[in-house]
Amino acid sequence: MPGPLRIPFPNAFPSPASPTPPHLTTLPSAISAITDFLLASPPGKTTILTGAGISTASGLTDYRGPQGTYSTRTNFRPVLITEFLNEPAKRNRYWSRAFLGYDSFSSKQPSPAHRVVAELVKVGLVGGVVTQNVDSLHERAMVREGEEMRLHWREKLVELHGALREVRCVKCEELYEGGRAKLQEWLASQNPVWEELRVKGDLIQGPDGDVAVPEGVRLPGFVEPGRCGGCGGLVKPDIVFFGENLRREVKERAEGLVGGCERLLVLGTSLATLSAWRLVKRVVERRGEVAMVTLGGARDEQVFFGEGRGVRVEFDIQDVMVGVEGELRNKGIL
């Protein structure tokens, strides 16, 4: 029998020994390199892949950064899909912590880097965005770019691991009417003591919206969501849990965006998840160009950027992308 599922790479990867190319040791040089990278292919032939690092400036934590969940919460262990489906106590615990964290999580606003990425898509320089994040911040940034992006962001954005704003039945796959916002209101009405704790705040939030309840706090049982009104199946946030496969249509859309690009710009991810790592590997194997901006190391980057291939810099994403925006404005592109 197969062994139990394990969380992949809970520890941070080591930082690269030097940037690629080696002379990119200053922020201005990194900004110029990423700007040149974006301009080196025809408009629309670059795709952007993002991870939790782009959202830390919005007030969310990442997983493996210096202040990430794995670094600051030594006992942290995300719920596995098998536990959510088959172990009622763990499912109930997940829903209670997710309830406490959702309002704060969903109130976060796009960072400057989210805004720059949306602008790059709007002007056609970037063909699309694949994000591992479930925070909807790319979606909000794109919608704010105007009516054209409001109509077309679903074509330009792939939320690889889903989005917490939606709730879906695991059996019939229908979305919950009104989404997570409506469900949150119902949960608050059914759990008044938990609602008092949520309003009080002072909770440690994770990158996927749940929180850690302080030691010593004793709370009554949590009333979790009912079953699907159509088929009686369990409902869960429309995100990919650890150990769960991507939805087929999502995987195909992501592969289509990456498969059709000449260049891939990677922002704020260590590539620890197999789904994101595979996308980068695919571009490298067909000799496409890859650039990466992230603090800390990344999975297999010595392979992806070996022998001087691509661009790899370790600077704050916000500083780099705001700088890129400035250079593109100076060139009359934005």
Score class of each variant (00 low, 15 high):
residue 2 P to R: 13
residue 7 I to A: 08
residue 17 A to T: 14
residue 22 P to D: 04
residue 24 L to Y: 11
residue 25 T to H: 02
residue 27 L to V: 13
residue 28 P to D: 10
residue 35 T to P: 07
residue 43 P to L: 06
residue 56 T to F: 03
residue 73 R to L: 15
residue 82 T to Q: 15
residue 84 F to M: 15
residue 85 L to F: 00
residue 88 P to W: 06
residue 88 P to S: 04
residue 94 Y to S: 08
residue 105 F to K: 11
residue 110 P to A: 05
residue 116 V to I: 13
residue 116 V to D: 08
residue 119 E to Y: 01
residue 133 N to F: 04
residue 133 N to K: 07
residue 136 S to Q: 01
residue 140 R to V: 13
residue 140 R to N: 04
residue 142 M to G: 08
residue 144 R to E: 15
residue 145 E to D: 10
residue 154 R to F: 01
residue 154 R to Q: 14
residue 155 E to D: 15
residue 164 L to P: 02
residue 164 L to K: 04
residue 170 V to W: 08
residue 172 C to Y: 08
residue 178 G to Y: 06
residue 178 G to T: 10
residue 185 E to C: 03
residue 189 S to A: 14
residue 190 Q to F: 01
residue 199 V to H: 05
residue 208 D to N: 07
residue 213 V to W: 12
residue 222 F to T: 04
residue 224 E to C: 10
residue 224 E to N: 04
residue 226 G to C: 06
residue 227 R to K: 15
residue 234 L to R: 05
residue 235 V to Q: 08
residue 235 V to E: 08
residue 240 V to T: 15
residue 257 L to I: 03
residue 263 R to N: 14
residue 271 L to A: 10
residue 277 W to Q: 11
residue 278 R to E: 13
residue 280 V to A: 10
residue 284 V to E: 12
residue 284 V to R: 15
residue 300 D to Y: 11
residue 302 Q to P: 00
residue 308 G to Y: 08
residue 311 V to D: 03
residue 311 V to M: 10
residue 312 R to Q: 05
residue 319 D to R: 13
